[in-house]
């Protein structure tokens, strides 16, 4: 386990334990204690933020009474909502923005604590223009990324390295293998 991974895991385990304890207290109340319910929701929300569970919907289906979210960013070939890349074999991540409404997108690769930025670039549409409802995109990962776990974050505005890394769009766990000599 590298340092980045460890710094992510330790607080997560602490929250998971707190979550289990609070859930147990709520269970003892028969699910009726508003105090323990609030605690459970709060800790659950923090755990979701830390685990970067996907917010967006991965793919577009038309339904009668139900709408997909806008600027819905989907990554191709996700395995359990994780992106695994071996830079010696492939340094590209591809995906699609469904129900696009924004005209400008940025992506940023950070550590799992969202404190350090490793790559920050504008997201370009494959056809050169962000002007269609669905836009395919390709991200070329930097060769300088070391092996480890990162977060891939998306924004629909120009983001600077010093800005907060938290975004209202889904973040993805990015697992990089880089065994360059």
């Amino acid at each position: 386990m590298n340092k980045t991974e460890f710094s992510f895991t330790l607080p997560f385990v602490a929250f998971a334990l707190a979550f289990a304890a609070v859930s147990f207290m709520l269970y003892l109340s028969g699910g009726k204690s508003s105090y323990w319910l609030k605690k459970k929701m709060k800790i659950g929300a923090i755990m979701l933020t830390m685990s970067a569970a996907s917010v967006g919907y991965q793919g577009c289906i038309t339904t009668c009474y139900d709408m997909p979210a806008q600027n819905d960013i989907s990554i191709d070939n996700l395995a359990n909502y994780e992106i695994r890349v071996n830079l010696q074999e492939n340094k590209y991540i591809t995906g699609t923005i469904y129900e696009r409404i924004s005209t400008e997108f940025y992506f940023r690769i950070t550590d799992t604590a969202y404190t350090k930025t490793f790559q920050l670039e504008q997201l370009k549409a494959d056809d050169g223009a962000m002007d269609e409802s669905s836009e395919k995109f390709t991200i070329m990962l930097s060769d300088s990324l070391e092996s480890g776990i990162y977060m891939l974050n998306f924004y629909d505005y120009k983001v600077l390295a010093e800005d907060s890394a938290y975004a209202s769009y889904p973040s993805f766990r990015l697992i990089v293998e880089n065994n360059r000599p």
């Binding site: 699910g31 319910l37 459970k40 659950g44 996907s54 917010v55 967006g56 139900d66 889904p170």
Partner: peptide, 21 residues
């Protein structure tokens, strides 16, 4: 729905995106 927020939380922790009608 009975204990709806907990059902939503469970679904989200299973890494499913969620919307509500």
């Amino acid at each position: 729905a009975e204990r709806f927020p907990e059902i939503v939380l469970f679904t989200r922790l299973k890494n499913k995106s969620v919307s509500i009608i």
